[in-house]
Nucleic acid binder design. Structure first.
Lengths: 135, 135
DNA sequence: TTACATCTTGTTATATTATAACAATCTAAA
DNA sequence: TTTAGATTGTTATAATATAACAAGATGTAA
């Protein structure tokens, strides 16, 4: 029941909700998650939001801010919690996490006009996915 | 009453709401905007959201997705509507629009692993602003 | 000018997303 | 085994956003 690393130990609710998001082919919204886990005893929005907050915090999932939806992290789990990039299809709403060493290096080293650096960022690209482009 | 370019002509509600946001030193939330324009006859959330939608569409304002708040565009107005970058202070919540030719060039030319390019994106950097860093 | 299409408005109601507050329970480590 | 801290369950409510529809304004073309 326990994993080796404490930082990855999920509580029951967290595990249930993570499993659901992880299996979903698309980002899930909080109340859709709630609906799906009610049969497992999670009945209230707060129970969902608390688990989501924690999962985001430890990097197991990410929030797609422009969609108010959540997806599981597949970039060697939890390392990318503070530096995320996604592509979002404006037609089918497919979301893909971008893992590009070049991009993350560029952004982590970016200095604004005051010379300030930022190790934490969220980038959302919008366009058409391959499938929708063809149509 | 009319400006030279039709695409910049604002309706009464749009103008009232844009002026308010433009004067604000910080991003404004929809219901705070509503509260502030009620004395000018804008009484319902939908009137605010409709104006906001239009102002975002034509690039006069931007939405800070992670904060559900809106700020006026100061990058030669409306040209940056589809390619936005901001720095956000995690303590005082100060938000600054980043206008960096290098950054926008890099992101506009970024290709994902499928070779796909995206002309539209939103980037939010998080950190501490100068003032909050000192404290 | 008139008539039409389109856009914008005003309004009520409601949907969706998220948090406050607090008592009870569980868990990990001393 | 006790105690501090995290997590849970629960009710209520706050904050953000859209649906639906009637009425009014505006541009344009005959």
């Amino acid at each position: 029941m326990k994993t080796v690393h404490k930082e990855h130990t999920l509580t029951k609710n967290q595990q249930i909700i993570f499993d659901l998001i992880d299996k979903s082919p698309e980002p899930m919204k909080a109340y859709s998650i709630l609906f799906n886990v009610q049969k497992k005893g999670i009945k209230a929005p707060l129970q969902v939001y608390r688990a989501l907050d924690k999962l985001v915090e430890i990097g197991k999932i990410h929030k797609i801010e422009s969609r108010n939806a959540f997806i599981a992290c597949h970039n060697s789990s939890c390392q990318m919690a503070n530096a995320t990039a996604f592509s979002i299809c404006e037609i089918c709403e497919k979301v893909t996490e971008i893992s590009s060493a070049g991009l993350s290096k560029y952004l982590a080293n970016f200095k604004d006009k005051d010379g300030m650096k930022y190790s934490k960022y969220n980038l959302e690209f919008f366009g058409l996915c391959k499938k929708c482009k063809v149509k």
